[in-house]
């Protein structure tokens, strides 16, 4: 049930599961993380009740047992154990005809972090209460020239330290972007705030960072890069100490 075009993945360390959105079939697939080869998912979310339209990214809150899926102008929240044609538990609607391109959740500080890249508008990082529902204003927004955000792709929370890591891949998805980097912000940041750290750029090794995750044990950051067509690991103890 996988496809050859998938742009999201999340690992649930508590339940040892892998989550993958499959936009061409409007589904979210949940696999046992131990499997290998051609195996069916343990569960999948799909059908008219789901409201899934273009699921491209996903994140998991293993503490509160919820799955977060950005989908055009909203964030759909499903129970972790959802299977089949299941309605979302909550829908967080982006305010003022906004759009959401990626989402991650911090279950320690009860924050949902979403990024937005609407054409003609500056890129932004938005912070919502984890239990937000309906059309609500974010309680914090990071945007502006000091952020150096001219586009975003993947995003991942670092709940233990109250941080969020954002892939800044530039304004267009074609070719290399010399200003690309992975930026680190605090979930308490608000306004035109520069990243506390940048990884792999600007003018560094990253050309089009797309995905990011944390290896806490080894104090490292793992980044996928479209133009390098590669996965890079950076030792970065600063954000783990």
């Amino acid at each position: 049930m996988l496809g050859r075009t998938m742009h999201g993945i999340a690992y649930d360390p508590v339940h040892d599961e892998i989550l993958v959105p499959q936009p061409f079939a409007q589904s979210v697939l949940i696999f046992n993380a131990a499997i290998s080869g051609e195996q069916p998912p343990t569960r999948y979310i799909q059908g008219p009740l789901t409201q899934l339209s273009d699921p491209d990214k996903v994140d998991i809150d293993p503490v509160h047992n919820e799955i977060f899926v950005p989908d055009r102008d909203k964030i759909l929240v499903f129970p972790r154990t959802a299977n089949g044609n299941v309605a979302p538990l909550r829908v967080i609607k982006m305010p003022k005809e906004g759009a959401v391109s990626a989402v991650t959740v911090d279950p320690v500080h009860n924050v949902v972090i979403a990024t937005s890249n609407l054409r003609g508008q500056p890129s932004k990082i938005m912070f919502f209460d984890r239990t937000a529902q309906g059309e609500v204003a974010p309680k914090g927004i990071v945007t502006g020239p000091k952020t150096m955000l001219t586009g975003t792709f993947g995003v991942r929370a670092h709940p233990q330290k109250g941080l969020v890591l954002v892939c800044m891949n530039g304004p267009v998805s074609v070719g290399a972007h010399e200003g690309a980097f992975v930026g680190v912000w605090s979930i308490t940041d608000h306004g035109d705030v520069p990243p506390r750290w940048t990884i792999g750029g600007p003018h560094g090794v990253l050309k089009q960072p797309r995905g990011v995750d944390l290896d806490v044990k080894n104090k490292s950051i793992v980044v996928s890069d479209k133009v390098r067509n590669a996965v890079l690991t950076f030792y970065f103890p600063e954000i783990f100490n």
Partner: peptide, 25 residues
């Protein structure tokens, strides 16, 4: 909003090379 959830600003780390790269040559 949580307060003081993050450490203070760090040094410029943009040029730090990766310790590993998975890439098919």
């Amino acid at each position: 909003m949580q307060e003081d959830a993050a450490p203070s600003s760090g040094s410029d780390s943009a040029k730090r090379p990766p310790v590993r790269e998975i890439h098919d040559p």
